[in-house]
Nucleic acid binder design. Structure first.
Lengths: 184, 184
DNA sequence: TACACTATGTTATATTATCACATCTAGTGT
DNA sequence: ACACTAGATGTGATAATATAACATAGTGTA
């Protein structure tokens, strides 16, 4: 009677989440890395969260009567997930979200290298952050990335990573609470 | 004999910096705000720093035998300067830089509203962050901003602020220490 | 088994930022 | 000059985020 409402702690993830975790594991294996239980759990919690999660939120969530992990446990897992492109850090929020490449089942099975290889190696990502509902949407607009690349080429700047964080109101929230047309 | 080498603490700023501070004061006045001594000092230190400065660096710098300010002193000044568009926060570095609009003397005297009004109200900024020499360059590429705006329009997202932070190697450092052409 | 390598546990601490409340100061109106 | 008010600053405590350093345990391989 309660199995459906269990907290998602020690691997009580939904089948959908498990499927994503399995995909992530595949990605890691191909990179010669291991998605351990610990990392899998952290990634699962991030996947299931409706909005970006802070490191200390995760820390609380993985605590149990038997296990009282310390911050490094979480940060190490986060570092791993970041390095392997499974999650992103939203700088403005000091919080973490799953990479959409992982989430989008569209071209499911061998999506492993479906996204542009460039984009991966550049650790590039773009986010729309809603200040009202706290939802964060990862977008992949070639136009923005192209503009960034063009600028860097012009400056002779060698890009290693680029992040675009746009704060404001998402379409849904903008309707409910439209931005005041401020006079000046 | 030592006046030229004094630490830049209690308003020992160069004439050039003083000029910028005066400009900043003008900007504030027009906005009905006051650039107090304290705020002026913090802004001066940021202007004079070669690279972005952390809040606690500033805190150390404004300490003197007579004055031992606490963190809120610095953060309050920083908040003020941010709100009035005189500085930016580099999220990836948790550090602060002067806004280039303030620095560029090109069209000097009444530059107060020279930059696009839009850009100011949007709190928009773009940075090239060199991981080698730590220099940060603020760029103002219309192409990037346009691409961002176009994307948001398409999504129905209302932009309140947007930041683009690009990490890598500046032209100078890229030559000295070229990025390894990594095999895969 | 022995070894090397990776991952995890554990304690302490560093770094960045804010809260809450007291005090002071500058401008305003009388 | 006076009192009033709003903004600015001082002060002490604490919150929130992140890392260092070193010990231990697991995993794959010769």
């Amino acid at each position: 009677m309660k199995s459906a409402m269990q907290p998602a702690s020690p691997d009580n993830f939904s089948p959908a989440t498990q499927a994503l975790l399995d995909r992530a594991e595949g990605l890691c294996t191909r990179q010669g890395a291991r998605l351990t239980q610990q990392r899998r759990e952290i990634l699962g919690l991030i996947l299931d969260a409706p909005t970006p999660v802070g490191a200390y939120d995760l820390l609380e969530q993985i605590k149990s009567p038997e296990r009282k992990p310390a911050p490094p446990t979480v940060y190490r897992a986060l570092d791993f997930l970041l390095e392997h492109g499974l999650i992103h850090r939203i700088e403005k929020l000091s919080a973490f979200v799953a990479c959409t490449h992982l989430l989008h089942n569209d071209h499911a099975h061998d999506c492993a290298h479906d996204h542009h290889h460039d984009d991966m190696c550049l650790h590039t990502a773009q986010f729309l952050i809603c200040r009202s509902c706290k939802n964060v949407t990862e977008i992949s607009t070639p136009a923005i990335l192209d503009a960034v690349r063009a600028t860097c080429r012009a400056e002779g700047f060698v890009i290693q990573s680029a992040s675009v964080e746009i704060e404001g109101l998402c379409a849904a929230c903008a309707q409910k609470r439209p931005a005041p047309a401020h006079a000046h």
